[in-house]
């Protein structure tokens, strides 16, 4: 078991090292915002393990409830794991701590991944989530809800999170606060005109407490983003044109994500375009638009979990649910 774990960490570090080179712009100047020094060797395994557990939770939750959007959740999991596992200051025992870093999931349909991340961190009981996600009478709506501890803003209608994040970042500046605001958007979401209103606002107001991460999984409702609807092209370049500091990185490489998120951006908001794979981590879901809509059958769930075997503690979080017959 220990050997297997070591091998996993070794493999992850190898990926992480190569991935770091994909960061388009290396840190080059001192910034008004200081990010805790990244301790790659000790933190990568922790966030990787968090990501694995969140993936299992998401698969179990959506399979059990018949909810869609599993592939959208899987693409954003590593971003969340790095943010919550190593970057953001949050306190699960005090979700409203005024000094906390704020997080907004603007691509609200990735909500299962946020709920699972918060549950893994201890914001609320994970079993409650696994049993009640998407269920009548619960707070765990398919798109994130502010009724859930740790969730700042209900979202689901695309293009609406970034503006609120701007308002929060403006409040931070007015109060000379040290906390930061992180906002995750989808790439398809960048079709929305309101995104670009807010992008202008953020750079005009020099909102350097604000970081946006675009989950660039390249897919939207009908298929590849740039083939089926509007051509998004180089999203980082667009944000740069709107006055932002913007970098690209591998959105599944934890060290690359952490490095990108540490990019100095004094006086400017930061955009990290995280290149991801929709459905990441489950071979038969990766890049298949079907999993924007469908949920895994019990058989497919078992197959997905088998792909995680040997990673982490080797005891998939959803196993208990499967054994208890909770999956229809």
């Amino acid at each position: 078991m220990a050997e297997a774990l070591d091998r996993t960490i070794e493999a992850e570090e190898a990926v992480a090292t190569s991935g770091a080179e994909t960061v388009a712009e290396a840190p080059e100047e001192s910034s008004a915002i200081s990010v805790s020094p990244w301790v790659a060797n000790s933190l990568v395994p922790a966030t990787v393990d968090l990501a694995r557990r969140v993936r299992e939770d998401c698969l179990a939750m959506t399979s059990r409830s018949g909810a869609g959007h599993i592939a959208s959740a899987l693409s954003v999991v590593d971003i969340l794991a790095v943010l919550y596992g190593s970057i953001m200051a949050v306190d699960p025992t005090n979700p409203d701590d005024p000094t906390r870093d704020r997080f907004i999931l603007s691509k609200g349909h990735g909500g299962s991944a946020v709920y699972a991340t918060l549950a893994e961190l201890g914001f609320f009981d994970k079993n409650d989530l696994l049993k009640n996600y998407y269920a009548n009478g619960s707070s765990f709506s398919g798109h994130v809800s502010h009724d859930v501890p740790g969730v700042e803003l209900t979202t689901g209608s695309l293009g609406q999170g970034l503006g609120v994040a701007c308002g929060i970042a403006l409040a931070a500046r007015l109060r000379a606060a040290t906390w930061r605001v992180f906002c995750v958007m989808g790439d398809g979401e960048c079709d929305e005109g309101s995104v670009w209103e807010s992008a202008l606002m953020a750079s005009t107001q020099c909102l350097d407490r604000l970081t946006v991460i675009v989950d660039r999984n390249g897919m939207q409702s009908f298929g590849p983003t740039d083939d089926t609807a509007l051509v998004l092209g180089d999203i980082a370049e667009k944000f740069r044109a709107f006055g932002w500091k913007a970098v690209d990185c591998d959105g599944h490489d934890h060290r690359a994500l952490a490095t990108a998120l540490a990019t100095p951006h004094g006086g400017q908001p930061l955009c990290v375009v995280a290149h991801t794979v929709k459905g990441k981590g489950v071979s038969f879901m990766e890049g298949d638009i079907r999993w924007h809509y469908d949920s895994a059958s019990p058989q497919e769930l078992g197959q997905a979990f088998s792909e995680f075997a040997g990673q982490g503690d080797g005891f998939p979080a959803g196993t208990a649910i499967l054994r208890s017959g909770g999956v229809a």
Partner: peptide, 8 residues
């Protein structure tokens, strides 16, 4: 949206 963020 900015007003909402400020009010939050």
């Amino acid at each position: 949206e900015v007003a909402a963020g400020l009010a939050l």
